[in-house]
Amino acid sequence: MRRLAAFVATLFFVSVLVFVVVRVLPGDPALLIMGTEGSPEAAARLREAMGLNRAIPVQYADWLWRALRGDLGVSIQYDVPVARLIVSRLPVTLPLTLLAACLMSVTALPLGLYAATRHRRAGDYVAMVFSQIGIAIPSFWAGLLLILLFSVRLGWVQSGGFEGWSGGLWPGIRSLLLPAIALGLFQAAVLVRATRSAVLDVLREEYVRTARAKGVSEALVLGKHTLRNALVPIVTVAGIQLGQLMAGSIILESVFALPGLGRLALGAITARDLPVVQGVTLFVAACIVLINFAVDIAYVILDPRIRYD
C-alpha cells in the first residue's frame, strides 16, 4: 500500500517535470510551435486554443486530467491524436526492447554464474575481459559494425527497415535481430558483472559452506542455495536495465531505420511537433517508473525477509 502511494507520487512528479519543461520553461509555447513565421494574431489564436492564457496550475490540472484519460493532445505534423501515434509505434519499440532483454538475460546470467564458479581462474578472466569490452562499445557503433559485417560484407540481411508483423513472426523478428543484439550487448556486459559479484557474495555465506560440508552436490549448492539468494541484487540491476533498454531502443531505431517511438520523437523535433515529443517522453518515463515499481514488488516475492512497512 505504501509502495503504491509512493509509485503514484512518483508518477505525479514525472508529469510535473514534463509539464514544467514544455509549458513553463520556454515562456510562450505558442511562439515555440509557430516559430518566427507566425503572425501575432495567429499566435494569439493558438494561445487561446491551447488555453495558455489561464493560470499555470489550472493549465496543469487540465493537461493532467486529459492525459489520465489517454488524451495526449493532437500531433501538429500528422493531425492525429498523439496517443494513437504512440500506440501505432509500439509494435516496433516493445518487441525490440523485449528481444534485447531476452538476449541479454540468456547470455549474461549463465556467463556471470560461470565466471563466479571459476573465480580468479582462466574462465573468470576471459569472461571479465569480454564484459569490459562490451561495456566500452557504444550500442550505435555496435549496430553500425553489425550492418557493416552482415549486410555490407556478407549480404545476409538488409541493413534496416522493418517488415512488420503481418507476414508472420519470423520476418518481424528477423528485422529486429541485429538491432536487439547491438542494444543488448552493453547491458549484457553490465549484467555479467552484476551476476558474477552477486553470486560471489552469496558463495562466501556461511550457509553455503554448511551445505557443502553436509555433502550437498555442487550443482544443488549453486542452483538451490546460491542462485535464489543472489537473485535479489541481480533483479535490481536487470530492472534498471530494462528501462535503459527501452530508452536505448531510441538510438538503435535510428541506426536501423525502424519506425518506432524513438524515430517518432526525433522526427517530431525537426517538425517542431511539441505535443508528440511531450507525449512520447511522458509515456517512456512513466514506463520506466512502472518497471522500477515492479522491481520493488519483485523483491518481496523473491525474498520474504524483505518487508516494506
Partner: peptide
Amino acid sequence: MRLIDAVQGFPAILSALLFSAVF
C-alpha cells in the same frame, strides 16, 4: 525521494529529446 524516483524515469536520451524540442 519521490522526485528522485521520478527523475530516474528520464535517462539522458529522454531529457535530451524533450530539451531539444523546447530549446
